[in-house]
């Protein structure tokens, strides 16, 4: 399968700050890629370089076979994280303007506008100024701008931010439709649950560097550690010092124990029966959220060596959210 997007050792610095550090990536045609990372990890900078809004200091980028997205902008759809609308233009004028900027004209443009508005149920708002739209409607309109010209590659930067559950479902359906017509989608998000459900493959970056890459299955199987979840009444604290338990989060009603590779869950279960009246016992693979927190936390700890106490406290904060 041909690659729609490739980045090779891409580096971008802003003064002394390195935003993206020798980052490489290949996105084959038709894939839905989840581009994950904490705030300030370099996601938006990377996406802006892909869109040739800014240029990398080092490394190569190829978009749809071209070294610069500027040459193929009409075949790429982009929903930026920082997005707005012309307040005084109507919905129709807005779509018409952006459609023209993306190479659509005349009849084809009118047909696409009608089609898209129908799909997201905005057709009645066509003649209204965008400032009259609710926030959710504005978000839908912004999404339409990104896909109006039926692009082969769609880049969505935090598309779920600020959407209500209904609109999140609509957006997921629309992304599935993109997949249905074999468009390639790069999706940057904080919402692990959405990424887990939508994406064929995940790339996790932190401090401008790639931490992990692979399909959901690959990534989860790479983390052989297991989570032991116990629920009930009792003194779960006494389980945290058992051999094989690497990490533990205990409340009065629940314990989440992270197990070593060699640990035997049934041995722990036996002890648990002694100390508590159990209502639930389950062995889990870590989900994306946990993998994310663990990897980013560990990476921060590495960075803490040179970054000092501030990063250190960041780690503990991240741990607590686990």
């Amino acid at each position: 399968m041909t690659d729609v997007l490739t980045l090779t050792d891409v580096t971008k610095r802003f003064g002394r700050f390195t935003a993206v550090d020798r980052f490489s990536l290949r996105v084959p045609a038709g894939e839905v890629l989840g581009f994950l990372g904490p705030n300030g990890a370099g996601k938006t900078t990377t996406i802006r370089m892909v869109m040739s809004i800014i240029y990398p200091d080092e490394g190569e980028i190829s978009v749809l076979g071209q070294p610069r997205a500027s040459q193929v902008k009409d075949r790429v759809g982009y929903l930026p994280e920082e997005r707005g609308l012309y307040r005084k233009m109507t919905v129709d004028q807005t779509l018409r303007y952006f459609g023209r900027l993306k190479g659509l004209h005349g009849h084809a443009l009118s047909r696409r506008i009608a089609e898209c508005l129908e799909r997201v149920e905005l057709q009645d708002w066509r003649r209204k100024r965008t400032e009259a739209l609710s926030k959710g409607m504005q978000q839908k309109l912004q999404f339409l701008i990104a896909i109006l010209h039926e692009p082969e590659l769609v880049i969505l930067d935090e598309p779920f931010a600020g959407l209500d559950p209904l609109n999140i479902e609509l957006l997921k359906a629309l992304i599935d439709e993109l997949r249905g017509r074999r468009a390639t989608v790069v999706l940057s998000t904080h919402q692990m649950e959405q990424a887990q459900r939508l994406c064929d493959r995940i790339v996790l970056i932190n401090r401008g560097r790639k931490l992990i890459e692979g399909s959901m299955h690959e990534i989860r199987s790479r983390f052989t550690t297991r989570m032991l979840v116990l629920e009930g009444e009792g003194d779960f604290e006494r389980l945290t010092h058992l051999p094989g338990v690497v990490n533990a989060h205990v409340t009065t009603a629940q314990a989440r124990l992270e197990l070593d590779d060699g640990a035997d869950p049934s041995a722990i279960l036996k002890r648990a029966v002694d100390v508590a009246r159990l209502s639930r016992f389950e062995i889990q693979r870590p989900d994306l959220q946990e993998i994310f927190v663990r990897l980013v936390g560990a990476d921060r700890q590495v960075g803490a060596g040179d970054a000092g106490d501030e990063a250190e406290s960041g780690v503990t904060a991240a741990r607590r959210t686990n």
């Binding site: 040739s52 809004i53 902008k73 982009y78 707005g84 609308l85």
Partner: peptide, 14 residues
Amino acid sequence: SSRVVEVLLSAVSP
């Protein structure tokens, strides 16, 4: 300030 500029930059170069 209306944040429309990056949407524009998805279609045209700066």
